[in-house]
Simulated scan of single mutants.
Amino acid sequence: MPYNNASDTSNPKNVHRLIDIPAHDPFVVSHKETDTYYLYTTGIPELTGLERCGVLVYKSRDLLDWEGPYVVFVVPDGTWAHPLHGTWAPEVHKYHDKYYLFVTLHNRDRILAEPPEVWHTNHLRGTSIAVADSPEGPFELLKADGPVTPSTFMTLDGTLYVDQDEKPWMVYCHEWIQVIDGTFEAIPLKDDLSAAAGDPQHLFKASDAPWINAERKPDVKPAVYVSDGCQLYRTKSGHLVMLWSSYNNDGYVQTIARSKSGRLEGPWEQLDPLVVGDSGHGMLFKTFEGEWMLILHHPFSTPESRAKIYEIEETEDRFTVVKARADLHS
């Protein structure tokens, strides 16, 4: 497989279908300027032959045939993150004429707390931001001495949200490993996205979802609640919704919440799950024809995990699944 930069035209074309691409936490950018869909996913040495963890991208004109993979980011030396400890949940956002990569990095060698002080060993984990002039990278870290989120927190899956006042935020998941009942929180960003510009704000916790608690049974084990994969969107009538994922008795679940106030601070109400059956960490994108699509991964485990695409209907106050696009998965 080629692993050149995506803008390197000397890279020979290697065409794949989604069924062939190991994909976890898939993220798609519809780039109208070039009529190209970019599919970002994590690149780890065990599956790619890379010497260190990075982010891969595949390119397509029709969501069926994907060219690549190409490397758009690798964890550099001399930063807070360990280059072999993972690149989770990569996503790319256009903001102020540049492209920003949000990616969760790790350093398992930097222990934050250990039992008996805490119930589970905590290590440094959080989302960093890198910038490039193109969706094809290469992306360079903006902050090398730590994640954007507090360095004492175990966090993951940070995403960009720009509020009604054009103020940028990182919305992220506070890890169940640290807080047991995983939460969703938001931290304001500087206008250039180089660092945080204030303190975190709590949005809601995973156990707020009634469908999770309906399946719970008394047990001697800790009742942990996973918070994963937050993504924010507005419906055509202005309702603010958040995609997120957790677990039920059958595995990973793609669900959705809605802000009653229409603002980031909520309060947030939990809607019915969108996709079950060990599927989740999804995001929405629009096709060049203006249709909403949901992409997520199924099953959860790697290297079996693959990207799946669903047609989505946008209503006044939510998004709902129409059908799976099986024709794009085979």
Rank of each mutant, 00 (worst) to 15 (best):
A324E: 15
N14P: 00
V29D: 08
L18R: 10
E215L: 12
H281V: 09
Y225H: 14
H174V: 08
H16D: 00
V74Y: 00
Y38H: 15
S7L: 11
P168K: 13
G86F: 03
L160C: 09
M154I: 10
E51Q: 15
H239V: 11
D317Q: 12
A81E: 10
R258G: 01
P267Y: 08
K13C: 02
F27D: 14
V322D: 13
H24Q: 11
R263C: 08
Q178K: 05
V75E: 02
T235I: 09
V275W: 02
F73L: 07
T9N: 05
K308T: 03
L240M: 05
P2C: 10
S301I: 13
T42F: 05
T48I: 06
I19T: 10
L56T: 03
S330A: 13
T152E: 12
Y172I: 06
V276S: 10
M1K: 13
Y310F: 15
V92I: 14
V276H: 00
H106V: 11
F184Q: 05
S134E: 10
V275T: 06
I256G: 01
K260I: 02
Y100G: 04
Y161A: 08
V224T: 14
P218S: 14
A307S: 14
P135C: 12
G86S: 07
Y172M: 11
L50H: 02
S128Y: 03
F285T: 11
L160I: 11
V15T: 15
V321F: 01
T42N: 11
L63G: 03
T87C: 15
D97W: 04
T121G: 03
I111R: 06
Y70Q: 06
R108M: 07
H96S: 10
P303K: 09
E313P: 00
V15P: 00
P45C: 04
F73P: 02
I44K: 10
A197H: 00
T48G: 02
I312T: 12
A130K: 03
T48S: 14
F204D: 01
S194H: 07
D65S: 14
T149A: 07
K205E: 07
A206D: 02
A197I: 04
H239D: 13
G262W: 04
S330W: 06
D317Y: 03
T104A: 14
A209C: 06
D35W: 01
R110A: 11
N213V: 10
P267G: 09
A214W: 02
V171F: 05
R17T: 13
H298A: 12
P150D: 09
Q254V: 02
G262R: 04
H82S: 15
T79V: 15
Q178P: 00
S207N: 07
P76D: 01
H16C: 08
N4W: 06
D8I: 08
K308A: 07
K13N: 09
P116Y: 09
P90V: 09
D35I: 00
G282P: 06
T104Q: 06
Q254F: 09
W119A: 14
P83W: 02
Y225L: 01
S30A: 15
T255A: 15
D62S: 08
T155V: 06
L156N: 04
Q178I: 04
S246P: 00
